[in-house]
Nucleic acid binder design. Structure first.
Length: 493
RNA sequence: GAGCCCGUAGCUCAGCCGGUAGAGCAUCUGACUUUUAAUCAGGAGGUCGUGGGUUCGAAUCCCGCCGGGCUCACCA
């Protein structure tokens, strides 16, 4: 609580009411209230009750006071399911309760006992026979009609945003439904949900800058994980299951943008004895079925554009897409210098040490990514940028990796997983070379991971899906901050 | 990290080619009483993000800082 709030005239006035309530013998923060009905349940139960009809049905509802009309005669109570109107009239409510009513404010949480009726104007209403203050609110809510518009306050004080905005509430509820749907779809297919370390001594499985922390007793630095990949594969080596997945937070110490939050939620799954083609089917299955369940359709509108998520999705190789768009066939370019020159000419920015694969990938990023609006599996990434992926079965310069693009953004990343320990070690060596050349995000050698592979990991397909971005897509949210309840912000003052 | 934009009452906003701050809602007082953003009358409420500068005078012009948004960079 800041000084400003403490000096707030509204807060002062409400503290005085709080004292007055206690003087009346009213406890403003009681322990329990036996609720018997929610607003939505009442709406459903009494949907056929005609206007102007009374019932003798007694209910107990509870919620936040969001509107007071006619000097307290009508209250709008909001609970987690919706709105129910309360009618306070001397015909039903004992006189001493009107003292309590006078001391109620917008934002207070109250319980109401009474009988259900529908008013002549058609509003389902509880004729209150007893009001119970359940929580006194000390601060005024934002204005009801316009709601809370200030985006900074919406993110910093999400509770206020949720009180005021049905849309924000729906988005965050949909997030929960989306994750539940994915979990169910995977469980149905026999996947085992596992948990792997957030604190890692060697941050692996992705190219990203990690957050560093310190363990006091061990007196070592530990990293917040940038990916669970290397640990999930260890579980595959162990054979805990042929199908494992984890849905959890990852942390990357990089820029914040409408599509990036330093901590974000990733689904990662591994399935033994299949390749990246199976992962394409899996990506389509998870996203399309979840869209059906949460949005009721596989045709979703994102930022004004209709996206058709109905499987199967378009598949195209990176090289073909680049060739189609630029006319340059990287597959027939034999050396690094020529490839880099072609890429730079097309506007791709490449480091001096760039090779053929960096060049192809650079052109793809610069020229193609943003144009992929409808779901597209972009296949066969260059070896250099895919250090954990199995070599392509027909072209050793490439790997069996695809990323799925929708609305110009990456939604999935999947491989035929590299399980050749000798090749894996060579890839780590190449990464360490890039690190020496100044690429801070090149992957670090994890020797124990290579050891695990030496014991033998079954051939497997692996898939990662960014959950926050999927939620953005399915809730038509423009910013990742809208789908994360408490997005990372710089602390105030 | 760079560029552009924003920050005025509890909330939503107006005022901004310089002349000492305004509305609606909320709040308080009163009236009214079967309302639906209830209505009517009256009152209170502001270090104009913050610190400097220019000026007789700054919410307004200039600079720094703080916080936010967008774009770019980073995010293979």
């Amino acid at each position: 609580m800041s000084d400003e709030d403490e000096e707030n005239q509204f807060r002062t006035a409400r503290l005085e009411k709080l004292a007055a309530l206690r003087k009346l013998g009213v406890e403003p923060y009681p322990y329990v209230f036996p609720v018997t009905a929610t607003a939505a349940a009442l709406d459903a139960t009494y949907k056929d009750l005609s206007a102007g009809t009374n019932t003798n049905d007694v209910v107990a509802v509870a919620g936040r006071v969001r509107a007071v009309r006619n000097n307290g005669m009508f209250l709008d109570l909001h609970d987690a399911t919706g709105k129910i109107q309360v009618f306070n009239h001397k015909d039903f409510l004992p006189p001493e309760q009107f003292q309590l009513l006078k001391l109620l404010d917008l934002g207070d949480i109250v319980g109401v006992d009474g009988k259900i009726r529908r008013t002549p104007r058609g509003e389902l209403t509880v004729n209150a026979t007893r009001l119970t203050l359940l929580t006194k609110s000390l601060l005024p809510l934002p204005e009801k009609y316009h709601g809370l518009a200030d985006v900074e306050t919406r993110y910093r004080q999400r509770y206020l945003d949720l009180i005021m905005s049905a849309e924000s509430t729906k988005t965050l509820r949909d997030r929960s439904r989306i994750i539940a749907s994915i979990r169910r779809l995977l469980t149905v297919r026999g996947f085992l949900e596992v948990e792997t370390p957030m604190l890692q001594a060697i941050p692996g499985g992705a190219a990203a800058k990690p957050f560093v922390t310190h363990h006091n007793t061990l007196d070592i630095d530990l990293y917040l994980r940038i990916s669970p990949e290397l640990y999930l594969k260890r579980l595959l080596v162990g054979g805990i299951s042929d199908k494992v997945f984890e849905i959890n937070r990852n942390f990357r110490n990089e820029g914040i943008s409408p599509r990036h939050n330093p901590e974000f939620t990733l689904l990662e799954l591994y399935q033994a004895y299949v390749d990246y083609f199976a992962m394409m089917e899996m990506t389509e299955h998870l996203i399309a079925e979840t869209a059906r369940e949460v949005c009721g359709t596989t045709h979703v509108t994102y930022q004004g554009q209709v996206i058709d998520l109905t499987p199967p999705w378009k598949r195209a190789t990176m090289a073909d897409l680049v060739k189609e768009k630029t006319g340059i066939d990287f597959l027939v370019i034999a050396n690094d210098a020529e490839a880099c020159a072609a890429a730079r000419k097309l506007g791709a920015e490449l480091p001096k040490s760039a090779t053929w694969g960096h060049a192809l990938y650079g052109v793809f990023e610069a020229e193609i990514e943003a144009t992929l609006i409808q779901p597209t599996h972009v296949m066969d990434f260059p070896r250099e940028v895919s250090p954990l992926t199995k070599a392509h079965r027909t072209d050793p310069r490439l790997t069996e990796r695809f990323e799925t693009f929708i609305h110009g953004g990456e939604y999935a990343n999947a491989y035929s997983e590299l399980n050749d320990p000798v090749d894996q070690l060579a890839r780590f060596d190449a990464q360490m070379h890039e690190r020496d050349l100044g690429d801070e995000e090149a992957q670090r050698l994890d020797k124990d991971f290579v050891t695990a592979l030496e014991y033998g990991m079954p051939p497997a397909g692996g898939l990662g899906i960014g959950i926050d971005r999927l939620v953005m897509l399915l809730t038509d949210s423009a910013s990742i901050r809208d789908v994360i309840a408490f997005p990372t912000l710089r602390p105030r003052s």
